[in-house]
């Protein structure tokens, strides 16, 4: 009964929304701010990845917010799961030899790959968030493989906080020296397609990469430690 009613009303809403999307032409060219972002993206940023220039520079405030969101989630999660042996009754089983061996091999490569992603955020697809997630996935691999693996929460918190402070601090530096928060004109933009280009963007993204990596790792650790027996 509930299913029928739910489906009925979902269909109604769906039809209305579908009628909207039927009026939006798919694949037609865009007008508006994106024209500016695309056309002048290289001129103003010197970074190849236009999405990164938008994310970190034009709409850097959103990214600051995003970073805060992730920080909030990690803090909130560790707050809620503080010393909670909630899932005590679930034991973790010993991982197989295949997994352990693969992890030993892959983990450093994963770290390297993740670092590559966030360092080259302004040149290739990706950036701080993507790179950080990759690093965290490596850490998760370690958790899966070794039941005795612990992370150093103090270190993670410190990295997390320092990285966040760096980001906001860079913004304030911009406010002081260039009259606007998160201004990118503090250091030189460099040359297009080179590693050291796009001004502050790589620095911000590196900070973000560290932060996200640390945060997601801490997140995973907090969840897993609800099962562990000590």
């Amino acid at each position: 009964m509930r299913k029928i009613v739910a489906i009925f009303f979902l269909t109604i809403v769906g039809l209305y929304m579908l009628s909207l999307f039927a009026q939006i032409p798919f694949g037609k060219p865009y007008k508006g701010v994106s024209e500016h972002y695309v056309e002048r993206g290289i001129v103003e940023n010197r970074g190849s990845n236009l999405v990164t220039s938008i994310v970190v520079n034009y709409r850097g405030f959103d990214t600051l917010g995003e970073v805060t969101v992730l920080f909030l989630a990690a803090t909130g999660l560790s707050f809620l799961l503080f010393s909670c042996k909630c899932l005590r009754e679930f034991k973790r089983i010993r991982s197989s030899l295949v997994l352990r061996t693969a992890t030993d091999t892959l983990f450093p490569l994963i770290l390297l790959f993740g670092a590559y992603i966030f360092i080259h955020g302004h040149l290739t697809p990706g950036g701080g968030f993507q790179g950080g997630s990759v690093i965290a996935s490596g850490v998760m691999l370690l958790f899966l493989a070794y039941r005795s693996f612990h992370v150093n929460h103090k270190a993670l918190s410190t990295i997390e906080s320092l990285a966040g402070i760096t980001f906001a601090g860079i913004g304030l530096v911009g406010l002081i020296y260039a009259k606007s928060f998160l201004a990118n004109s503090v250091i030189s933009l460099g040359q297009w397609n080179k590693l050291f280009s796009a001004g502050l963007i790589p620095f911000i993204y590196i900070a973000v990469g560290f932060k996200v990596g640390a945060e997601l790792s801490g997140l995973i650790s907090d969840m897993i430690s609800t099962t562990k027996e000590d």
Partner: peptide, 18 residues
């Protein structure tokens, strides 16, 4: 400047982590 309010609060929140 209103943005300073936001920035300072953020930095403070992050720093509590340390």
């Amino acid at each position: 400047n209103p943005v300073v309010i936001i920035a300072v609060t953020l930095i403070a929140a992050f720093s509590i982590g340390i």
